[in-house]
């Protein structure tokens, strides 16, 4: 069952519509990428899920039931703009937020100690946030977000401000939380990290959901029938054999030399098998691989309105 369902949510402000009839479902246990250019409405959607603001129309269902104020205890949210009380001790601060999320003082202290040991930051316990570096404060923010073991975790640009080592640590932690049963919404502009950790995505542009689905399925759906062919044998024979069956995009000649690799575009899915048999007859086929577009390409094309297929939700 889906953990979270957004149904026909619309939010209007005085001058503009921030979200226009957006629907999406987030499966339990998924890492769900929420993508979109700046100002598309991602933050508005996240705020609606967090009940920071209310939708004008539509409903948000958690576990199939409309969300209530009590449900915010089951959400952990790390906003893009990180915020901690600068003058407060790290430990006091984390316990404070955890108590607001419904943990007892004792329980919060125990869990916080576990996290401090996990991250090897025991000596930060009595430090004030203003004495921490940006990356250190980010770690504290992460702990604050996940300490109450929420069912739903929302991270807005979680890796910004981390060095590569710590970004990797965060990624491992996010995946570990997923393995322990949390569902994760992950909002970012970094498409490489989307490909690494997301299994579902939704792309919001101009207040609307323009693209949704499983990550691999979305990428395949937007493949342009471009294939890479590795072979052994007569290059000329292959090229002349392919003529008429498909378009040759790259014949493998580069400034450094000639490789036994070509790129082709097949007009229609149904022609693929025919093309393979033609290749097979002319040369020894070593590999035949579809080139799947990167999320980056899909993102740019989708936002520019150049996707060839009309998406259905």
């Amino acid at each position: 069952m889906d953990l979270l369902r957004i149904e026909h949510v619309t939010k209007r402000y005085a001058e503009h519509t921030a979200l226009n009839d957006v629907s999406l479902s987030i499966p339990r246990g998924s890492v769900y990428g929420l993508l979109g250019p700046n100002g598309a409405g991602k933050t508005t959607l996240i705020r609606i899920i967090n009940r920071i603001i209310m939708a004008d129309e539509g409903t948000v269902l958690l576990n199939g039931k409309p969300m209530t104020q009590q449900d915010v205890y089951r959400i952990g949210y790390m906003p893009e703009e990180r915020g901690l009380y600068k003058k407060m001790k790290v430990s006091d601060q984390a316990i404070y937020f955890a108590r607001l999320k419904g943990l007892s003082h004792r329980e919060a202290t125990t869990r916080l100690k576990e996290w401090f040991i996990r991250f090897g930051i025991q000596d930060w316990w009595n430090k004030k946030v203003e004495d921490l570096s940006k990356g250190m404060a980010q770690k504290v923010q992460f702990i604050v977000t996940v300490m109450h073991k929420p069912e739903l975790l929302i991270f807005d640009e979680p890796f910004s401000g981390f060095d590569p080592i710590n970004a990797n640590l965060m990624k491992q932690e996010i995946l570990r939380l997923r393995d322990e049963g949390s569902t994760i919404i992950f909002s970012t502009h970094n498409m490489a990290s989307v490909e690494e950790i997301c299994d579902h995505i939704t792309l919001i542009n101009k207040s609307q959901n323009i693209l949704s689905g499983r990550l691999d399925e979305v990428r395949h759906r937007h493949g342009n029938n471009i294939f890479e062919v590795d072979f052994r044998g007569e290059r000329e024979a292959l090229i002349s054999a392919l003529d008429g069956h498909c378009t040759l995009l790259d014949d493998g000649t580069t400034a450094e030399g000639i490789y036994n690799q070509v790129k082709i575009h097949v007009e229609d899915d149904s022609d693929v098998r025919g093309v393979i048999s033609v290749i097979n007859q002319s040369v020894e086929l070593r590999s035949f691989r579809e080139i799947i577009p990167s999320m980056n390409d899909i993102f740019i094309k989708a936002v520019a309105g150049q996707l060839k297929t009309v998406e259905e939700k």
Binding site: I52, Y77, P79, R82, G83, L84, Y85, K86, F97, L100
Partner: peptide, 16 residues
């Protein structure tokens, strides 16, 4: 201080 320190966003996701 809460507003400029961006703590508000975290807080209001928990309390009204």
């Amino acid at each position: 201080e809460e507003k400029s320190g961006k703590v508000l966003e975290v807080m209001v996701s928990t309390v009204r």
